[in-house]
Amino acid sequence: MPPLTPPRAPSGPRRRSLLAGALGAGTAAVLLPACSGGGTAPEEAKQASAERRLRARSAEDSRTLLRRYDATAEAHPGLAALLAPLRGETERHARAFEDGAGPGSGAASPDGPSAPARDGGPATTAPGPGPGADGGAPDVPGDEKAALEALAGAERRAADTRTGALTGASPELARLLASVAACGAAHAYLLTEAS
């Protein structure tokens, strides 16, 4: 019996390999500008405008939480000392979103609700924290435990809203949103434990 020798492979790349390589190179050439930030001026302006609106909404979400903290401390003075550190962090969050918003951001002022965006975009609103988003004092339950639970729920909703906004944010804003969302989740936990 003659010895079995494996069939000889043709030298050089096969047609399928060449075709696959050409397709892969074409795809990489299309994706490379998107990854390198080489967008057009209108695209970059649109992204910057969306980022300013997201910062303004996030700042207003924090301001809405501040109004809820203030209303809760006013309705239940015995909780003021417990709420003070959490309120202080929430105020720092609002300032962090406002400080990075830049000129023409439409970021909310500490005294009022949302302001119209100066870039011609729609007015910003606060979809996350819930009652009190209109700038008025939120309703606070008469029972301390229920008031803490309501505040914890508002913190959870704000954290969920910020987490949901991560995908559309720039890396810098995404880090801030993630950090503030994690802090809000910790606030919700502490408020729930205290209730």
Rank of each mutant, 00 (worst) to 15 (best):
A174N: 05
G120T: 02
A158G: 01
A80Q: 10
R118D: 15
A101N: 07
L151K: 01
R67L: 07
A80M: 00
R57C: 08
P2A: 12
T5E: 11
P171S: 07
G106T: 01
R8F: 01
G37I: 05
R15Q: 04
G120I: 00
A146W: 00
L31E: 02
P138H: 03
G104L: 05
P2V: 12
E193H: 03
E74R: 12
L18W: 09
A50T: 01
G153D: 12
A28P: 10
H93G: 05
F97T: 04
D61E: 13
G135T: 11
G26F: 06
M1L: 08
L19T: 10
H76C: 04
A9K: 13
G106C: 12
L82W: 05
A80R: 12
P116A: 10
L173Q: 13
T161A: 13
G88Q: 14
A123W: 15
A182W: 03
P116Q: 10
M1E: 11
R14A: 12
A159F: 04
G132C: 03
S62F: 04
G128A: 06
P13A: 09
H187A: 04
P85F: 08
A81D: 14
G120A: 10
S17Q: 12
R68I: 02
L148R: 06
P129C: 08
D99C: 12
A137T: 08
A117D: 15
L31Y: 10
R87E: 14
E51S: 11
E172A: 13
K145L: 08
A165S: 14
P7N: 01
S36H: 08
L151Q: 08
L82F: 03
D139M: 04
H76F: 01
A126Y: 10
C35S: 15
A123N: 07
A181K: 03
L176H: 03
D99F: 09
E89P: 08
L86W: 07
A147H: 02
L148Q: 00
P103I: 03
A158L: 11
T5I: 04
D143I: 09
L79C: 06
L166H: 02
A84H: 09
A188R: 01
P7Q: 01
G132T: 03
P171V: 09
G132I: 05
A73S: 13
L176W: 03
A147C: 12
A45S: 09
P77M: 04
P113W: 05
A178S: 11
A94D: 14
A152E: 00
A126S: 14
P2T: 12
G121I: 11
A186K: 11
E155I: 09
G88W: 00
L191M: 05
A158E: 12
P122T: 11
S109E: 15
L4F: 15
L18N: 02
A25T: 09
D99H: 10
A178R: 02
E51W: 03
R57A: 12
D134F: 10
G135F: 05
E51Q: 11
R53Q: 15
T90C: 11
G37R: 02
A194M: 04
P103Y: 08
A73N: 10
S11D: 13
L65G: 04
L151A: 01
A147W: 00
G39Y: 15
G120L: 01
P103D: 10
S179F: 01
V30P: 15
S114A: 15
A159G: 02
A81M: 07
A194S: 13
E155W: 06
G121V: 09
E144V: 06
L86S: 06
R15C: 06
L86M: 14
